[in-house]
């Protein structure tokens, strides 16, 4: 007999993570399903859906690109006059710290993929000083990008003529689970992201 129970409400509580000084295992965010099996109950965690986009070097970027990596992701657009520069300054901190670490990646999605084609993204990455292949700026099918934001990463984006977006960063582990969501415009929140990334990497090294 298979009984699937949906536990709602868990999501919201997890997003407000408390700032303990002691490093502990990061929560797995999102709505989990509990499946009864012959031997007990299995938990099926929310998982990032498969995706396929194209980056600033015309490379196809999929889940496999981030196989064996933890990654930080955000949604932005190159002509953004509001919060994107602040987000990129904060993401540069992640890049500067982890650019030589093969276990870490960054994935920035354009929410204006029609304007932000490969050429525009290439120029943007170069102007930002990003040389290492660990940071992919991707473009692709607009509906698919928006769907990834809303249903996989839980990052609010909307195109009402002026590309609304929340400026959030999501931290994804090697099993494609979300382990943290941060305010990408807030230096302190990104301090927490950097601490959490260390804790997450440690989880893999102490296994």
């Amino acid at each position: 007999m298979k009984l699937i129970l949906f536990l709602s409400g868990v999501t919201a509580i997890f997003f407000i993570s408390c700032s303990d000084s002691k490093p502990k295992k990061l929560p797995i965010l999102g709505q989990s399903e509990y499946v009864e099996t012959a031997t007990g109950t299995d938990t099926i965690y929310h998982e990032i859906k498969p995706f396929s986009f194209i980056d600033q070097d015309s490379t196809i970027i999929t889940n496999d690109t981030y196989k064996g990596k933890i990654y930080v992701t955000d949604f932005f657009f190159t002509t953004c006059p509001s919060i994107c520069p602040l987000m990129k300054i904060q993401l540069l901190r992640v890049y500067d710290k982890y650019k030589d670490n093969p276990e870490v990646g960054i994935l920035s999605h354009s929410i204006d993929p029609e304007y932000d084609d490969v050429k525009v993204l290439k120029d943007y990455a170069e102007r930002l000083g990003v040389e290492k292949g660990m940071w992919h700026f991707v473009t692709g099918d607009k509906d698919k990008i928006y769907d990834m934001a809303q249903t996989s990463y839980y990052i609010g984006v909307r195109d009402d003529g002026s590309f609304e977006h929340s400026g959030k960063f999501a931290l994804v582990d090697k099993e494609r689970h979300i382990r943290g969501v941060y305010d990408g415009t807030d230096e302190k929140s990104v301090d927490k992201l950097l601490t959490d990334m260390e804790a997450l990497l440690k989880e893999y090294h102490t296994k």
């Binding site: 509001s82 919060i83 520069p85 990129k88 540069l92 102007r127 930002l128």
Partner: peptide, 15 residues
């Protein structure tokens, strides 16, 4: 401020 930053430094070769 969000583009040119609080120290007026802009952002790399973007701003």
């Amino acid at each position: 401020l969000s583009c040119h930053q609080k120290n007026g430094q802009g952002l790399k070769k973007l701003i």
